[in-house]
């Protein structure tokens, strides 16, 4: 099989697995909803400040993202991993996972945006830029979390490990996202935000290149 047919088969497989185990995706969606409400109720007294909205939104996205992606390697048994190992190229497999997780995070983030705007108001002034920030954020988080969860899935206590391994690494992405989305919310004025977008794309590029090169070493058991 060539790269593309492998890639699309693996991508299709991700969707099928998700569809079969509907409780997992429902759980994540419910997690997003609960978190939105908890965050809203906890921050009710500082309502109306756009920057607070911004920070809380990205924290919701961060925690929802980590929970959604961490299952991507943990949910598949060792035997099935071995089966893939004989059939497909590891780099193709990880690219399919990253693509799937990007789409998943994009949907979850839009969902989080929708519900959070419903309860906490919608201070976004530049919707186009904000949508772009959400897309870039989904890509960055998906790559970083997929890579880290593939390492952590091999270890004994993977949930703690994902958090301690990924949070420091995710920080450059998170800071740039916060900056860009403050611009979209008109909290800060900056016309040269293209530079931040390029920074973000550069970080994403480095992360995906590292994932592509290093995943074969993680996978092999």
């Amino acid at each position: 099989m060539n790269f593309f047919s492998q890639f699309f088969t693996l991508l299709k497989k991700e969707f099928i697995i998700e569809f079969r185990q509907r409780y997992a995706i429902s759980g994540i969606v419910l997690y997003v909803f609960s978190m939105v409400f908890v965050v809203y109720v906890a921050s009710i007294s500082i309502k109306g400040q756009a920057q607070v909205w911004n920070i809380l939104f990205w924290l919701i996205v961060l925690f929802a993202g980590i929970n959604a992606v961490v299952k991507s390697f943990v949910q598949e048994s060792g035997a099935r991993q071995l089966y893939y190992y004989q059939l497909v190229d590891p780099s193709t497999l990880v690219l399919a996972k990253v693509t799937y997780n990007t789409l998943l995070l994009l949907v979850l983030n839009l969902l989080a945006y929708g519900t959070f705007s419903l309860v906490a108001g919608n201070p976004v002034k530049d919707l186009g830029l904000f949508a772009l920030v959400i897309l870039l954020g989904s890509i960055g988080f998906a790559i970083a979390f997929t890579f880290i969860s593939s390492i952590a899935a091999k270890a004994n206590n993977s949930a703690t490990l994902v958090a301690i391994l990924s949070f420091p690494v995710i920080l450059p992405i998170l800071l740039t996202l916060l900056r860009l989305s403050s611009i979209a919310l008109r909290v800060i004025q900056d016309t040269a935000f293209q530079k931040d977008i390029i920074n973000l794309l550069a970080i994403d590029g480095i992360l995906i290149a590292l994932t592509f090169v290093l995943f074969p070493y993680i996978w092999r058991d």
Binding site: F147, I151, A155, N156, N157, L214
Partner: peptide, 22 residues
Amino acid sequence: ILRASFDEPEKGARLAAVYNIF
């Protein structure tokens, strides 16, 4: 922490090497 959380030292060394590059 990552190194210490593996039972087999070789597996820990390999994944720690990957993480170190990252």
